[in-house]
Amino acid sequence: MVAIIWGLFVKKPDGGMVFSVVAHAAILGYAIVGFSSAKPYDPYQEALPVEVLTLSEFDQLTKGSNQSKKAPEAKPKIAAEKVAAVDAKALPPAPVAKEDVAAPPKETEAPPPPPEPKKEEPKKAETPPPPPPEPKPADLPKPPEKKPEPKPDNSQAELDKLIKKEVEKKPEKKVEKKPEKPKPKFDPSKIASLVDKRDPGRKAQEGREVADITTAGVSTGQATQLSLSMQSMIGTMIQQHLYSCFNPPPGTIGRTDLIATISFEVTEQGTLIGTPVLQASSGDAAFADSAMRAVYSCTQPARPLKLPVEHYDFWRNVVLDFRPPVG
């Protein structure tokens, strides 16, 4: 210490000392200024609340809540496509079939309570746009792209579309086949009566597909959200049941290039509603037919699709890929 002070101050300062003192003053000054504000370390910022649930507890958590998000992406796209198509096509003839065309706008209202719409449907046909929130049925419908949910209205709209554009209808899968009976009678001027005559047991088309779950919840308070295990269990049950009736044509066994995607709708008892729709096929008509036969035979009242009724919302609409069994 003494030596240092002697070296620093007693000796006559020279060039090196001047340089050194200046450099140290500069560096220390920078350090004092630069480090002056140590950022407070806040380790709790990133914490997320985590709750541990058992699987069974999670399965019981099926009631929807107000804050829940909209349905996942996949489904809205399908449904929105359809709605938009309907509107685009419906716009020109709007004046003619005012009431019916007007129906879609109301679809924009959010959470579609499945059961009620069912009851409503027949009534709706006569008094076209009763549902409350949109009081202007006569207006040209503003395309409700956003909310794809509402099933009954969609189907109705699709019916309209069907009626008007029967010919080009091919690409639209689900609906086309369905109204077998009404079809021959279709007449744009009699839409209301046509809708009226639909099979009362008929259900809306735009249901969830097997793989899709919404988090939005349903008014019945059940099965908006299934655990992954539950979903896969239901999926497996459906597949097993339908494959038990599946008799692929000889020679297709083991082929991996064949696929037939069939969508259909079932009642709570597991019987078929309407007609299954071949959504996608690898082109082999015999194979697709055999898959179709499997759907028919495995949804007979004598051989229903037995699934947990409390999750009916989830499996009401089934989309299943049929592939030839391996080996």
């Binding site: 240092i4 620093l8 060039g15 090196g16 340089f19 140290h24």
Partner: peptide, 23 residues
């Protein structure tokens, strides 16, 4: 504090020596 001051002074002195010796 004394240790810190001493070390800073030592550093100053060292650098003075370094500069001078280098020259």
């Amino acid at each position: 504090k004394i240790v810190m001051i001493g070390l800073v002074l030592a550093s100053v002195w060292c650098w003075a020596i370094i500069v001078n010796k280098y020259a």
